[in-house]
Structures are given as C-alpha cells and as structure tokens.
C-alpha cells in the first residue's frame, strides 16, 4: 500500500452491531427440503414468545407467503414477499436491496419487532446469505436428497450457523444412513451445530426453536 494511503479511508469503522432492531435469521436450502414448513413451525412455536415477522423470497410466485397466510401462522401484515428477478441467490447474497427493503418495512410497521425470519427461494448447495442481511443463518437439507449431501459440502452446508437435516422419518424408505449424515456433517462443519429432525414427527420444530431462542438471548446480551 502506498505510504500516503490510510485503510480507514476505505473501510467504514466497524460497529459492534449492525443495527438495534430484531434478530434476523436466514432460512436457506434446496427446493423441497422444508424451508417453508420450518418457517411455519417456528412461527407457531415462537409466535407467542416473540414479536416476529417473515420475509419470503419465492422464485416465481407468492406461494410460500400464501402458504404462511393460509395456515394462519402469522397475520398478513407480518409477512412480506419479494421478487428475486430469476436469481434467488443474488437477492440474499450479492444484492440484498429488495430484502432489506422488506425487513425495514416490517420494522417500521412493527416497532417492537424482536425476530425476523428471511426465507430464501429454493436454490442449490452454494447459496448462502450475506451477513449484511441476516445475523445468523440456518441451512435446511433433507434426507430424501441423499445421505451424501453433507459430504458434498458447499457454503450452506459447511458455513451456516445451524445445519438442519429434515425428514429423518424418510431415511428407511430412501435408504439413507443417518449416522453417515451426522458424521459427515461433523467433519465438514467443525464446531458448528447440526440437528437431524422430522417436522412430520415434531411439527413444533422443538430443537430448532430452542436454538433460535438461544440466538435471541445472545444477541440481547451483546446489545446490553
């Protein structure tokens, strides 16, 4: 670097917290892995504890938002759907403008908001959220996608704050070995947690909800 250049002129001073608003939790993962079902389960389980809202990123329609509304998981004014211009991973990582608009709209509408779930459109194993958009992210894969998915890795599997392996009830039907998935996840993820769940058997998503509660608690401590 030339001697007359100062890095502080190029980079904004880091702040302890991006904002004082709600905890933002990203829910990502491949098509059909159960992102919307998990969002619905978390809203049902946590809706009475926290002031919460959801942003959906459907690829083509407002189907996910409609699903949440139909199931009366949340009132209409707590669900916002954004269009992603044929590029769901761009909208959650490379240019998060539409999602920030939606989150800020929900924050303005509900000043006491404590928790926002941002559900990505179904994408591939390389899709992950920008930490400019979310504070923590959950990546959802399912057993029916094959027990080799954790081994294949990708940013969602390896670097997400929580990996959820859904549909464990299907393991015997599709010939998936849950021990292999558990072991491979631990190998590629190091200390980051993995939960193997079945939303069919536990519609309350008990373990995932407990993880979210812990994230809210930690954030409150950090905010003082």
């Amino acid at each position: 670097m030339p001697p007359d250049h100062n890095l502080a002129d190029y980079v904004d001073a880091p702040t302890a917290h991006r904002h004082g608003g709600p905890l933002r939790v990203g829910l990502g993962g491949p098509v059909g892995s159960g992102k919307t079902a998990l969002a619905a389960a978390l809203c049902r389980t946590l809706g009475a504890e926290y002031d919460l809202a959801v942003v959906t990123n459907d690829i083509y329609t407002t189907e996910d938002a409609d699903f949440l509304r139909r199931n009366a998981v949340l009132p209409d004014d707590r669900i916002e759907a954004v269009q992603t211009g044929c590029c769901p991973h761009t909208a959650i990582r490379d240019d998060i403008t539409a999602n920030l608009d939606a989150v800020e709209l929900l924050e303005a509408r509900h000043p006491g908001l404590e928790l926002v779930f941002v559900e990505s459109g179904g994408d591939n194993l390389t899709a992950s959220f920008s930490y400019g958009l979310v504070d923590v992210q959950v990546f959802v894969v399912d057993v029916a996608g094959g027990d080799k998915v954790p081994r294949k890795g990708g940013p969602g599997v390896t670097a997400s704050d929580l990996l959820v392996v859904n549909k464990t009830d299907l393991a015997p039907l599709v010939g998936a070995d849950l021990d292999v998935m558990r072991r491979d996840s631990a190998t590629v993820r190091g200390d980051r947690p993995t939960l193997l769940i079945s939303l069919r058997e536990d519609p309350a998503a008990t373990e995932v909800a407990a993880w979210v509660r812990e994230q809210v608690r930690v954030r409150r401590l950090q905010q003082g």
Partner: peptide, 11 residues
Amino acid sequence: SRLPAGGHTHS
C-alpha cells in the same frame, strides 16, 4: 450492474 442497488430485481 453489480452495484447492490436492487436493479437486478427489475426487468
């Protein structure tokens, strides 16, 4: 076009 200003969601 990569400036993150939201343009990619408009056609």
